[in-house]
Simulated assay, not measured.
Amino acid sequence: MLAALVAGAYFFLQGPISQIIAATQGPADFTAEEAATGEDVVIMIHEGDGGSDITSTLVDEGVVKSFDAFYSILLQTTPEPVFQPGAYQLKTKMVASTALDALLDDGARLNQTVIVPEGTAAVDVLQSISEGTDIPLADLQAGAANVAGFGLPAEATTLEGFLFPATYTFSPGDTAQIVLQTMVNRQYEALDAAGVAVADRWKTIVFASLIQREAGLRVDYYKVARVFLNRLDPAQWESGLLQSDATVAYGTGNTHLVTTTDAERADAGNMYNTYAHPGMVVGPISNPGDLAIDAALHPADGPWLFFVTVNLDTGETVFSTTVAEHDAAVVVWQNWMREHPEYG
């Protein structure tokens, strides 16, 4: 009986004890031993990024172990740190205090270096270039407006979709034309490597840009591609409407969102509104990388017509064939959202 009581007390108190230990030890941080195994990584700080934005970037890139580890130190630092926009050479698995010191060290900031993540819209790529190089944003905007000078497909009216996402290092004195052409040429290299014919570049980029914005986990890219192809098949989806919130958001100028309002989805004046206009979206909505291009060329086989991400932390996505299945998955997502109001 005594043993049973001890065991019961242990399990009953395990949770509170763990909370007390966590509170006294502070937020999760990498140890010096773990930091010794870190690998080189380049992160980008953008104009207007606040402390929470920078902290989230560091967590996402594996630089610091937890949000609280870095942010708590940031809040305690006086005077308040001032971060310069641009690219920074750091390590993964850094002790939070060391990461902060590195960001405030001019030596960590890389000159003429630009990071373009997959799915970034062209307007944001131009901003990143201006932050990482000496080229004024106005020069980049003017250069990008000269679409005919980049050898793009005839359908292209902007550089959207053709600025390949990667990390670039340019030379001092490089002009806007040189920088943008370098990114366009890199996208052509990716398309050529994937076996895309020159005549098929436009339709491949348009589809890949949609997949890039809608898919989460790597394994889901190919299934997302299939969902949209099935919706283009009248035998499976009579309306022919892709009903992608990412396309609608792009048409409103909200390039960072994949959510929309009822009014935005009802606006037929938005030519990117795939709730109102059937068929493939009229143009690229992001700059896709190799994975999205491959998914556009090699979609998975399957009958799915719906998908919804039910866990925003893990990216877990449920693919469904029927409305009933999809509705059940949506309930799972709604319950998860209620349990995680910070995502609301």
Rank of each mutant, 00 (worst) to 15 (best):
L2Q: 14
L5Q: 05
A7S: 12
A7N: 00
A7G: 11
A7Y: 01
F12V: 14
Q14N: 12
Q14D: 14
P16T: 08
P16Y: 13
P16A: 13
P16M: 13
A23P: 00
T24R: 15
Q25H: 14
G26Y: 13
P27E: 12
E34D: 09
A35E: 15
T37S: 12
G38N: 05
V41Y: 07
I43Y: 11
I43P: 02
I45H: 10
G48I: 06
D49H: 15
T55R: 09
S56C: 00
V59S: 08
D60G: 05
D60F: 01
S66D: 01
F70C: 08
I73S: 14
L74I: 10
V82T: 15
P85K: 06
A87R: 08
A87N: 07
Y88W: 11
T92K: 10
M94P: 04
S97P: 01
T98N: 15
T98C: 00
A102K: 15
A102W: 01
A102G: 01
D105Y: 13
D106W: 01
G107V: 11
N111E: 15
N111M: 10
Q112I: 00
V114G: 08
V114Q: 07
V116P: 02
P117N: 08
E118I: 03
G119A: 11
T120C: 02
D124I: 00
S130D: 03
L137N: 01
L137C: 02
A138C: 00
A145W: 05
A145N: 09
A145V: 02
V147Y: 05
A148R: 03
G151Y: 04
G151L: 03
L152F: 10
P153A: 09
E155M: 02
T158L: 10
L159V: 07
L159N: 08
L159I: 08
E160N: 10
G161L: 10
F164E: 07
T167W: 02
T169V: 11
S171P: 00
P172M: 05
T175G: 15
A176M: 08
Q177V: 03
Q177G: 01
I178Q: 15
V179T: 10
V179G: 04
V184S: 06
N185R: 06
D192A: 13
D192Y: 00
A194P: 03
A199L: 10
R201F: 14
R201G: 09
R201L: 09
W202S: 04
W202P: 07
Q212A: 14
Q212K: 07
Q212E: 15
R226F: 01
L229G: 00
L232S: 08
W237T: 06
S239K: 06
S244Q: 10
D245A: 13
T247C: 12
Y250K: 12
Y250A: 12
G251E: 13
H256M: 09
R265S: 09
A266F: 05
D267H: 12
N273D: 11
Y275H: 11
Y275R: 13
A276I: 01
P278R: 07
M280F: 04
P284Y: 11
I285L: 12
G289D: 08
G289E: 06
I293T: 05
H298F: 02
H298T: 05
P303Q: 07
P303T: 08
L305V: 04
F306I: 01
F307Q: 05
V308F: 08
T314V: 01
V318L: 09
T321L: 02
T322F: 06
V323E: 14
D327G: 00
V331S: 12
N335K: 13
N335T: 11
H340Q: 05
P341L: 06
E342T: 06
Y343Q: 02
G344I: 06
